[in-house]
Computed example of a mutant assay.
Amino acid sequence: MSGSRRDNVGKDLIFLGGLVVVAVALILYLVMDADTDVAGPTAGAAPTSISASPDERATESGVAPVERRQEGDPFALGDPDAPVAMVMFSDYRCPFCAKFSRDTQPELVERFVENGTLRIEWRDFPIFGEESKLAARAGRAAAEQGRFWEFNEAVYAASPDRAKADLSEDALIGFAERAGVADIDRFVAGMRGTEFDNAIDADLAQGNRIGVPSTPAFLINNDPVLGAQPTDEFVRAINEALNS
């Protein structure tokens, strides 16, 4: 092998090694930060009461929980007092978020949400450009009319398997109509305006604070699950959280 080729191979190995180190560091950061900043009681501490209000849980553990557990939250599915809470950070353009929505979420709802075991909470994490932010506004405009999850499902049902979704204004209006949003003019005004930006930015800030590296990312009782893992992995994590 020539000296030039050996140099190129060496550079490639160093580059690949660097990618592995970065990936491991991101995962460790998420795990460690979730445990220290938002995970609740430290190891060996008494478990937090699942019937406590968010403010009470924050007082008992010393830190604010990642989940909100707000009654009537349009961005949540399930009982606020469910023993297991799954917070998911998602982008409407993310093909792997769409895969989770289509393949895994319906089964988790049927198996765990409907019987009161699991609560699912959505967080906007629009990281793929202006169309992601536009879609996040559109989701909240649909939520104003009580059609958030229907809109969410309509967007993801039409998403490509691998590429990022094309979410123009016209496409989002079509999804709103498909989701049964009654007042489209009001929906469009919300989608084009900035009234939801503070809430969207708050979701982004929460995700960045705990080290979310990309979408989709999940915290199941504050234990991280990254990516659109197989459904069985979510079932395992939920059962583990339930029995811990």
Rank of each mutant, 00 (worst) to 15 (best):
T231W: 06
S49W: 00
I200E: 09
I220T: 12
D12W: 15
A179R: 01
S49M: 02
F218V: 05
A157K: 13
A154L: 09
D185K: 02
V235W: 05
C94Y: 00
R147T: 10
E110Q: 06
D55H: 06
E107F: 09
N198F: 07
G129E: 06
A176R: 11
T36R: 15
S49Y: 02
I220L: 13
P80C: 04
A52Y: 09
K164P: 01
E195N: 11
F125E: 07
A237F: 01
L134H: 11
F234H: 00
G78V: 02
S61W: 05
D197V: 00
L219C: 07
R186W: 04
E56L: 10
V109C: 05
W122N: 13
E56H: 02
L13S: 03
S51G: 02
K133I: 14
F75P: 01
P160I: 06
V181K: 04
L118G: 08
E114Y: 04
R57P: 01
Q229S: 11
S90D: 10
N222F: 03
V22D: 07
A46Y: 01
A163G: 08
D37E: 13
A58T: 09
I27E: 13
V225T: 11
A138H: 07
F128N: 13
V24Q: 14
G116P: 08
L134D: 09
L77W: 00
A25K: 08
A39F: 12
P80H: 06
D197A: 00
L19A: 09
A171T: 15
A64N: 04
A98T: 01
A179S: 01
R93S: 05
G190L: 12
Q206F: 05
V31P: 00
S49K: 12
T117K: 08
D201C: 05
T36W: 10
D223P: 00
Y92S: 04
M1T: 10
E60W: 07
L134M: 14
Q70V: 14
D35W: 10
D223C: 05
I14F: 00
N243T: 15
I14T: 09
G174I: 09
Q145C: 00
S168V: 12
M191V: 06
W149G: 04
A82D: 09
C94P: 03
V87S: 04
I220C: 11
G40K: 10
G44T: 05
V24N: 09
M32C: 03
E71C: 04
T48Y: 01
T104W: 04
E195G: 10
Y156Q: 12
V63E: 11
R68W: 04
G44A: 08
A34E: 12
D203H: 00
L108F: 03
R209D: 13
D33A: 14
E169T: 14
G174F: 04
Y29K: 14
T117E: 11
G193L: 03
S159W: 02
A64D: 07
D33V: 15
